[in-house]
Nucleic acid binder design. Structure first.
Lengths: 148, 148
DNA sequence: TATTGTTATACTCTATAACTATA
DNA sequence: TATAGTTATAGAGTATAACAATA
């Protein structure tokens, strides 16, 4: 079985690698009760307390409507709170709780272990080259991707 | 809004880049009535005529059960045929039709255009470094990913 | 007993439209 | 009129169990 034609394309290699990354990351996060999105959301809320849902949705590149259940999940576990914004009563400010900050620490530790695993002895130079290349690809599009 | 913590991770960059790749690829394939999976399946069948469904499922890393509808779609458009294998009457050999081979050519042309777009002026050297890095990541896992 | 293709099903993810309450 | 959050819903994608035909 030859996949030589597909191997010509960088996108094919990125897809296959991403499948491995996603599977291993979800395994690493499972003991913490987190998935890729809930983890990303938690990190952004801890790093940017007071963030609004619409800002978080844009940062995560998910629809506002779909973010609701993600936020519901984090709030239901008392990892974050939805706080009314006095100056704009339509909006909610998202803030981490103490438990949220603690899970953030544990999650980052788990994800660092996951990264060590997937990097698989890659040199720092190569890692930086990959990050540069991924940024270049991201810029090739307007910005918001979606359209999966 | 800072995503500095997430930017530390190569997985984050790969995910964002992959979103762009996937969106642009699907746009490129849409005029041909193909999606990423149906395109990959068609390419593998043209390059490996006589392939069995179970082999193709493994190559594409999808469940046999889910491959059925993908093959149904390609067969329904007369791009491939399901031919009984005389030596094993449980199995089907997948073969491209003339129309399938023609669409293969058009699809590859479309995907080459897509790649030029997303590579966005990337040097050949960097592209090869990325492919090497993606292969390294793929090897970090046992092999079959799934578990998304 | 095991395997190939299949059906049915369920669960996640994602996209869209429409609603409410505010601005 | 427009925006933030929400609800409902539909379409993909994907995973599992169970079946018929065949090995």
């Amino acid at each position: 079985m030859s996949d030589d034609t597909l191997r010509e394309f960088i996108g094919y290699h990125i897809k296959r690698a991403f499948n491995v990354v996603q599977a291993d990351l979800n395994q690493a996060l499972k003991p913490l009760g987190l998935r890729m999105v809930t983890y990303s959301a938690l990190v952004l809320i801890v790093d940017n307390p007071g963030l609004r849902q619409s800002q978080l949705a844009e940062a995560l590149d998910v629809e506002r409507a779909n973010l609701v259940v993600i936020i519901d999940e984090l709030e239901g576990r008392d990892l974050i709170t939805r706080d009314r914004v006095p100056t704009d009563r339509r909006a909610y400010a998202l803030n981490p709780t103490l438990a949220g900050r603690r899970l953030y620490d544990r999650a980052l530790e788990a994800v660092r272990g996951h990264e060590r695993r997937i990097l698989n002895g890659m040199t720092e130079e190569t890692k930086l080259a990959v990050i540069g290349a991924m940024s270049l690809i991201r810029q090739s599009s307007g910005g918001g991707s979606k359209g999966g």
